[in-house]
Design a binder for these strands. Structure first.
Lengths: 294, 294
DNA sequence: GCATTTATTGGACTACAGGTATAAAATAGT
DNA sequence: ACTATTTTATACCTGTAGTCCAATAAATGC
């Protein structure tokens, strides 16, 4: 990640939180980030794009957080599930975007791209939740898992919103989540209302085979090849080669890889592929999870 | 309702629906309504206030609609309940405000007043729903009625949103509502999560005694006295007097009153108290409902 | 009918927004 | 040290919400 871009994003994020999106002018961002207008438009084509970049970061943060929570825990652990759901709310709250995520479906046609971006995000969230519900409450609920996900998600959202508007800020989100899960646990048996195939386009690629993850990892590394070259960091180049070699090998040394990936991430810190480094780490953790499962 | 104000509201409403709120400039409204800037700011202090006026109208429309639906039907009729819930969605949809009602809790602090206005509206909606749930599913659910209301409301909202974003526009909202009600019917027995007293400030004044409604009606008529005088309509003045007399009487002639109120409303058409006329009619219908119940 | 009050007009004006364009200065790559 | 890119600072464009005000039109009181 470019230093200037980072600077802009950090300043903008603080301002969006403190003042709100539409009341924060570009000039405000320029002043706060100590950059000029030209620079801003060099990195973002609009204010909206800047917000979307911030939201993407937050999304990654959520995914990473949930991944971390699941490590070493059973997929059917309900309390892990609750914590994972809460992760979005905590991180959204941290970024003061609680509302924005669920809403911003205003009457405006102005922020169309932003709207679609958010719609996509929460449809994916519904899919994720449906999948996790199957894992936690059993495969036999799959048929109605989307019903459950929507019920649960909707209840959580409205309940937390209501509590917030009533000024009951002391109620932790986890309690609301347990309350909502209780509701779906009690229900079942009827015909599913929301069919699974509605959501097919939004389902994340399932990690059915570790081969796929391996391929994903490989692809990411290959995509990064030119960037890595450009950085002219000998160590990094070596790590790059090593990781690719291990991935094509039938007997990859996972422990060694873990260490190397850690160094890799360190090496790309403060470069424009910093975020990719983190992504690699996430993928690798998924890989390990699966190796353990086998 | 003033003619010019009406003109502005009508034009603005059409534009807000067609183009969206923030993309509609005041100039657009001026052009469409054929009025000047000065006139606009004579009636509204801002564009937001104009939107709020429109939303208030819509709210009245919903209340009126629900009132109409309940006439002659049992308070415990589930299908009436469903239709009443659907009323908000249909009317919101008609005005293309579906989204705005549930959302507009964006990161903006700009539209603070608008946000609070909407928050109040939907908190009242939750209260209304909780009350109706008690009527439909029995008093013994009162303890958990707010839990149910939030679950139901949240599920309806998210489900309809999801269906919309998935392009499944052919599913009628009533189906979604039945689905959501099914969910709350299956649940119950646990400790209530949302306590009734949280919502006290938002609960509408219950019409516990018809005396209260009578008083309300009386008050409205008394408040209108100067306006009625100003209109210099002999018939209207006579109606006004007649209605007030009947209301103080112990044996009001309800059928006659109904007829007179109808004429009353006719007489105030196109005046600045037109909306009050409708309000009187609504109050009167509530009065009749209660008289029947006794 | 006339005088007074009130509503309406329409444009000038302010202050600010998002975004473009550009020449000069700073920085980095080789 | 030379080149290429990035960054800066500013001027500029178009459009916005909202204020102000003198001139005009319409309603109202007498």
């Amino acid at each position: 990640m470019n230093k200037k871009k980072q600077q802009i994003i950090e300043a903008a994020q603080i301002l969006f939180i403190k003042k709100g999106f539409s009341v924060t002018s570009i000039q405000d961002i320029l002043d706060a980030a100590n950059i000029s207008k030209g620079t801003f438009y060099n990195y973002f084509s609009s204010k909206t794009e800047c917000l979307m970049a911030i939201l993407s970061f937050i999304k990654e943060e959520v995914i990473y957080n949930r991944q971390q929570l699941s490590i070493g825990k059973s997929a059917s652990d309900k309390h892990v599930f609750v914590k994972q759901i809460a992760a979005r709310f905590h991180i959204d709250k941290k970024h003061n975007l609680m509302a924005l995520f669920a809403s911003l479906t205003s009457t405006d046609t102005a922020h169309q791209e932003l709207k679609e971006f958010l719609n996509q995000q929460y449809l994916k969230e519904v899919c994720w939740m449906a999948e996790r519900i199957c894992e936690v409450f059993g495969e036999d609920r799959r048929k109605q898992s989307y019903d459950d996900a929507v019920t649960c998600f909707g209840t959580i959202h409205l309940t937390s919103k209501v509590l917030m508007d009533l000024g009951k800020t002391e109620v932790p989100i986890e309690e609301t989540i347990y309350f909502s899960l209780q509701k779906i646990e009690q229900t079942g048996g009827q015909q599913p209302f929301l069919k699974e195939d509605y959501f097919l386009p939004y389902q994340q690629k399932k990690n059915t085979e570790d081969k796929n993850i391996k391929k994903q990892l490989q692809q990411v590394l290959i995509d990064l090849e030119p960037n890595v070259k450009k950085l002219k960091n000998k160590k990094l180049a070596y790590y790059q080669k090593f990781l690719l070699d291990q991935l094509t090998s039938d007997t990859p040394d996972l422990l060694l890889m873990e260490s190397v990936i850690s160094s890799y991430q360190n090496a790309v810190q403060d470069t424009d592929i910093e975020d990719k480094g983190r992504y690699i780490q996430i993928l690798f953790m998924q890989l390990i999870e699966e190796e353990k499962g086998v």
